[in-house]
Design a protein around this nucleic acid. Structure first.
Lengths: 167, 167
DNA sequence: CTTCAATTGTTGAATATTCAATATTTTCAA
DNA sequence: TTGAAAATATTGAATATTCAACAATTGAAG
């Protein structure tokens, strides 16, 4: 990992003239200045691109998430899984039903707490998961190409800390 | 607007030690290292918060967007509006149907191109829009409180440029 | 122990979204 | 000028999501 001195005296290029810096939106600001809108817009676009990649395997983005989370080999309860893959419980139940039909995952009742169901990924699911991961990684590489390494990493860092600060 | 010299010699605080910097994800990276996932997660959380605020007026986030876009007073065609508010055309048509029933907006056939329908906001819609904007602005202020001004502005800037680079 | 509240997951009905087909109008080439 | 293709918006059927109610199990207080 890059390690640099704790303080550096460097030239920083700064904007001339009044900057188009995002300000807290006023009542009459365009919607494009709202963080909530920018997040929705960026998410929609990136998700659309990923969806197109994954369509090669005929699988929705949510199933990639499910397979990826389960690929640690441990059993995950439905509740846990729902949080991890950003789906409501009933939506997850029904998507898992489909994936069970497709023999990608299977349910096991948790012996420690029989209210719970532990989800596992099948061999078939693991194989699919690998192919999906390649597609997802290649999408992110494509983003990095046009958007840049620095920006991508900085954006990820900021998103993580936004999520942290929202809990 | 703030105006500063075009180059400044300043102290920049930099990280000591190896940083926990996000790297391009590998096949076996956790899903939380994928940009697509972080965007979905952040969007879900911020959208959920906004939804809760707007529920005071019994209005979904999408209707706030529609009213906000139409609040410039100009007529907007359905296609234009669909793009702006991040909805598919048929979804928008049906949501607009509801809003017309609620007397928030109305349709006018475009005299220049009669394939098009121009959408306008009613007085009632304008009044509601104002109240919704207050709620949305106060949400963003709340985010800025816990997340910080710098981070918020930087995040917005990066999201804008991500979107730009994706077109 | 027993009972009642909380947790976990699923189901079915109600609602919303999406896909494909349609209708209308405009554009443009022949 | 005409006819075919493109653009725009809507519709209805198919699909997906959500809400509220339910069933099963556990936890915990009395």
């Amino acid at each position: 990992m890059a390690s640099i001195a704790s303080h550096s005296l460097i030239w920083v290029k700064t904007k001339t003239k009044s900057q188009a810096v995002a300000k807290p939106p006023k009542d009459n600001s365009p919607i494009t200045e709202h963080l909530a809108y920018l997040l929705a817009q960026a998410n929609r676009e990136i998700n659309r691109q990923l969806e197109m990649r994954l369509s090669k395997e005929g699988v929705p983005v949510e199933q990639w998430r499910i397979l990826k989370v389960l690929s640690d080999g441990n059993g995950h309860s439905m509740g846990e899984l729902a949080d991890a893959v950003l789906l409501n419980h009933p939506t997850l139940t029904k998507m898992v039903d489909r994936m069970v039909s497709d023999a990608l995952v299977y349910r096991v009742q948790d012996p420690k707490d029989r209210r719970k169901v532990l989800m596992f990924v099948s061999d078939r699911g693991k194989a699919l998961s690998k192919r999906l991961n390649s597609l997802a990684v290649s999408q992110e590489e494509h983003i990095v190409e046009s958007y840049g390494d620095k920006s991508t990493n900085e954006l990820k860092r900021l998103l993580e800390s936004l999520i942290d600060s929202s809990n």
